[in-house]
């Protein structure tokens, strides 16, 4: 708590007409804040269950909404097919440098193996296990430069949202914030069972995570390419983030 907080809040209380000993907060039924932890956990469980049971229907919904939002959507049957799709894309873009997350699904593509023959540099954006502090710092600045120079960034996702055509990334160890941000083209791989029906289900799940204590520092919901309509209400893509985004629906 900072020194000025007490004074600021006490001014607020006076403005709100309860200067002395504010009564405890009576949470309104309108907000979800009042739901107890048990209810939140049960709801999260049922949402996770539905994502598995309805995986096919949700993937179909996602495909439609994502295309509307500007993703180039493709179905891939296997990790080999996904790697093939990316190899084709690399050729088409004449890409020389690729950065990737260290998520399990991306590791399984073996991009280093698939692309090295074509002379393409592939960099995993993760500090090596067991590095000491100074070596980690060095790796981080090298990683940052790789992301700045890359023509293509490849990530998995943590969730996808069918309602809005959205991929969700929760950056953490092994998952850099920059792979889906700095390169002009981003490929996101969505696995079967990762698709949630809507925003409400997604945030209910995140709330459950927060009550469980592991919300993490950051979260990005990506819905199509970077865009702006700031000049004459005309939409242009690729303003600061990627202008071209691919969603691969796996399995």
């Amino acid at each position: 708590m900072t020194g000025n907080q007490a004074e600021f809040l006490s001014n607020l209380r006076r403005t709100l007409g309860r200067p002395h000993d504010a009564p405890p907060l009576a949470i309104s039924d309108a907000t979800a804040l009042g739901r107890d932890a048990g209810e939140v956990a049960r709801r999260a469980e049922s949402i996770r269950g539905r994502a598995q049971e309805d995986a096919d229907a949700l993937a179909d919904e996602l495909e439609t909404a994502a295309a509307l939002a500007g993703w180039k959507v493709a179905r891939v049957a296997s990790t080999q097919d996904a790697a093939g799709y990316i190899a084709d894309l690399v050729r088409e873009l004449e890409a020389l440098s690729v950065v990737r997350s260290a998520q399990a699904v991306v590791e399984r593509l073996d991009l280093e193996g698939v692309l090295s023959g074509a002379g393409v540099q592939v960099n995993a954006m993760a500090v090596r296990e067991g590095s000491d502090e100074s070596s980690a710092d060095e790796q981080r600045s090298a990683m940052r430069q790789h992301a700045i120079d890359a023509d293509l960034g490849i990530t998995g996702v943590d969730y996808a949202i069918a309602e809005t055509g959205t991929c969700v990334l929760l950056p953490r160890k092994g998952i850099s914030r920059l792979v889906s941000l700095l390169p002009p083209v981003h490929v996101a791989i969505v696995e079967r069972g990762q698709v949630l029906p809507g925003l409400d289900e997604f945030f209910a799940l995140r709330r459950a995570h927060s009550l469980g204590g592991d919300l993490g520092s950051y979260m990005t919901l990506i819905t199509g390419p970077s865009r702006s309509a700031d000049i004459e209400y005309t939409i242009v893509t690729g303003v600061h983030g990627p202008g071209e985004v691919h969603m691969l629906l796996l399995g």
């Binding site: 981080r140 990683m143 953490r172 850099s176 925003l199 520092s217 950051y218 819905t223 983030g241």
Partner: peptide
């Protein structure tokens, strides 16, 4: 605001980067 179902990006920040985070 714009009629989009969701904006291209919604970003949430809960504190600075954690020790293990790759960047931030």
């Amino acid at each position: 605001a714009t009629g989009q179902r969701l904006s291209s990006y919604v970003t949430t920040v809960t504190g600075p980067r954690r020790h293990d985070d790759e960047d931030g």
